[in-house]
Each structure stands twice: as C-alpha cells, then as structure tokens.
Amino acid sequence: MKDIKIQVNDLSLYYGEKKALKEITMQVPANKVTALIGPSGCGKSTFLRCINRMNDLIPSVSITGQMLVEGVDIYDKNVDVVNIRKKIGMVFQKSNPFPKSIYENVAYGSRINGINDKNTLDEIVETSLRQAAIWDELKDRLGDSALGLSGGQQQRLCIARTLAVSPDIILMDEPASALDPISTSKIEELVHELKEQYTIIIVTHNMQQAARTSDHTAFFYMGELIEMGKTNEIFTKPEKKQTEDYITGRFG
C-alpha cells in the first residue's frame, strides 16, 4: 500500500457520447517517475488531466470508475477539487507564467492560500527556485516580468511555481516538447532530482526521454492502456505487439 500512490480502477472518460478513455486500470508507484507514452490522440494527456481533475473544466466530460489516491477516491462527491489540486500539481506543455514578476509567479500559490508574510514568502520563493535549479539564474531579477524569460527558464519557473505549493504528486504534460535540447536536458535532470520527494507522472511523446527519465512506463493507444511495467522492461522486451511496434517506430 505504501508504495502505491495512485490506484486507478476501470476509469472511463467520455466527451459527450465519445469514449476517450476505456476502462483504464493501473497503479502508480510512490516517489518514482512514471512515463505515459503513446501516439498523439491516444488519451495520455487526457488521462493525466484526470488525476488532478482538470477535466472538470470541460463541461461535456463525464467520468466513470475510480481514481484512488492513497486510497481516497478523488472523484468522490465529498472531495474538494481545490484541495486535490493543491496536493497534485501540474506543469503544462506550453510554459504559462502569469504576466507578473518572477517573484509573484512563485508566490502566487502561497498568496492564494493566505500567506502574505514577506519573510515566509521570500523563503518559499527561494526554496522553490532552488529546487527547480533556477535560483542562481534568477536571484538578481526577481522583480522582472516572467514573460521576459527564455522558454526553458519559463518552464522551470512554472515547475518552481508548482513546487511552491508543496504538492505530493506532480503531473507533467510534455514539459519539454517546446524546448531546445539544452533546456530539455535541464528539465530531465530536474525531474530526476525531484523524484526523491515527489511522485511524478510525465507525459511524453519522446521515447528517449521516457527511457532516460522514468522508472515505469505506461503505453496508451486509442484510449486504452495497452501495457505498463518497469521502463527497461517495456523498452527491451515489451509483451504486446502494439507496444513493440510503437517503440520500434513502426507507427506514431
């Protein structure tokens, strides 16, 4: 129980009539990096957004099945979606800093939680930026607009912003897809360091990235979970033919 963070049971998601996720059942281990791979449109991002209930924002979506996080069904009627999102942070594909200063971006989550004390905020901002390995680059320009940063810096700032609310699980939706190779490798290093403290689920279309960063890999295809296992096993001897075809580049 302790090393299984998320237990998904028969989770299906519908966009109106269309079934986009088909009876997903899987387990996500704690303090590990789990990669979700698959061709575009296979439902991996949709599944990721189910974990912190971002799909609630789309009116036509309906969900059946269970999503147990540490044994609590987050789709239970009595569960508060805002508290879920505080515990399960998310980093998006496109870096999306607020049009505010770097400092205010990181402090945002704390401020909305009612923390306004300057010293506490300073500390949170510094810790978070250090954790995101971007403190040294930014410490002298915390007052500048976050929009002036490079793409890679923006994305790491977004990670720092997520860390600042001290979540338990971090969801990353193709965090490096829009970045240059150097920034990408920085993000990958960061993911590697962060898994000590956080459970990380990362969606990627880049198989090398999945192989490099993750401990476990789940392969999605056409809204179904085809196969899941230890990353090195999935990549070396996949059980299902579809997985093998995808990994060897025969489609996708």
Partner: peptide
C-alpha cells in the same frame, strides 16, 4: 536523499473533504 515531505498519508478523507468557501 532526505525526505522533507512527510511520508504519512497526505490524502485522507478529512483533508480532502469538501469545504464551504464563503
């Protein structure tokens, strides 16, 4: 390394209970 984050359960029914926000 050192795990700052408490390894205790973060997700309990109580901590996630629906809140009324005035």
């Amino acid at each position: 390394m050192n795990s700052q984050v408490p390894t205790k359960q973060n997700f309990t029914k109580e901590s996630l209970k629906k809140q009324f926000r005035l």
